[in-house]
């Protein structure tokens, strides 16, 4: 047995060597380019900024003047962010709320819509287009739509249910205890449509005999879905989990359009931008927040990568 393995490994190695020898110059150039360019791009666009951000997060720098003007301050930025920077913890919480809302409302809603559309009901294409519109609209436009509906002075809700002409308004954007919920509704609306289209594609690709078999065995619709369809769509489900987490962590545009992510709409991404971009230019401070966001992102990424590698032997 052991000898077998050794022989096969030797043969394998020899085969590989032979193959390597057969590579023409053209192949080699092609391989170098195909490996080299992505490596260079990843290095320049991902690793260099990431590592510089981590480095800068331990410094105080206003971005003006050469690199010699950077002052090393150790962990001061992190300490200050956690202790004396009022928007940080709300932003942290809001990102978690965002994740919760997308995971428990947006994604299931999208899956539900996809499941219904998959039943070939009349006008399903029409519904599909309607549900898919939020993905096609730029997030900036969603921000503007929110303004039209939610603004206390000119918004639809305030005009219908209050009396802005006489100073009585319903304030869904300025009241920090409510604005996040209003924005989460918008975010879920958009996210659900995104999920719907991906899930619908998965459902369409599903072998119909699976469902027929379940029906013949007398399983109810719900039971068929949870026992047959859901497990069969595992690859799509994983994609949905990843998308949901990514969307929650990179949430930015809607709140930025509404009020630059202040006053109840703080998000980590907005705090990073607010500190680094603009006249403020607290490069070190903003980098430290970015590192916090990176650390949070690493948790789902590591779990995902771990899972994907675990599955390799199975397939």
């Amino acid at each position: 047995m052991a000898g077998d393995i050794a022989t096969s490994a030797r043969v394998d190695g020899a085969r590989r060597r032979k193959r390597a020898v057969r590579l023409s110059t053209g192949d080699r150039i092609a391989m170098t380019v195909m490996v080299g360019v992505p490596v260079l791009l990843t290095g320049a666009l991902i690793w260099f900024p990431t590592i510089s951000s981590i480095g800068l997060s331990f410094t105080n720098w206003d971005g003006i003047g050469g690199l010699h003007t950077i002052q090393w301050t150790g962990t001061t930025n992190y300490r200050q962010i956690a202790t004396i920077y009022p928007p940080f913890w709300p932003a942290f919480r809001h990102n978690l709320f965002w994740l919760g809302a997308l995971a428990f409302v947006g994604t299931p809603l999208g899956m539900f819509l996809a499941y219904q559309l998959d039943k070939q009901i009349r006008g399903s294409r029409f519904y599909q287009s309607i549900f898919y519109i939020p993905v096609v609209i730029a997030p900036a436009i969603i921000g503007l739509i929110s303004e039209l509906i939610l603004s206390p002075q000119q918004g639809l809700i305030s005009s219908l249910f209050a009396d802005p002409r006489h100073g009585h308004v319903i304030d869904w954007l300025g009241d920090p205890s409510r604005s996040l919920w209003a924005v989460l509704v918008l975010a879920c609306w958009r996210h659900a449509s995104y999920v719907m289209i991906i899930y619908l594609a998965g459902l369409k690709a599903l072998d119909p005999t699976l469902r027929e078999a379940a029906a013949i065995d007398g399983a109810s619709g719900t039971r068929t879905y949870f026992r047959v369809v859901l497990p069969a769509l595992k690859p799509i489900n994983i994609v949905l989990v990843v998308i949901t987490v990514i969307e929650a962590l990179r949430a930015f545009d809607i709140v930025y359009i509404i009020n630059r992510g202040r006053n109840g709409l703080e998000l980590l991404s907005v705090l990073i931008t607010g500190n680094i971009i603009g006249e403020a230019s607290r490069i070190g401070y903003g980098s430290a927040i970015a590192v916090v966001l990176l650390t949070i992102s690493l948790v789902p990424i590591v779990i995902f990568v771990w899972n994907s590698f675990q599955e390799v032997p199975e397939s």
């Binding site: 002075q153 305030s158 304030d171 954007l173 300025g174 009241d175």
Partner: peptide, 10 residues
């Protein structure tokens, strides 16, 4: 009312 939701143009 609703100061924090109003722009200066409002």
């Amino acid at each position: 009312e609703g100061t924090l939701g109003l722009t200066w143009q409002d």
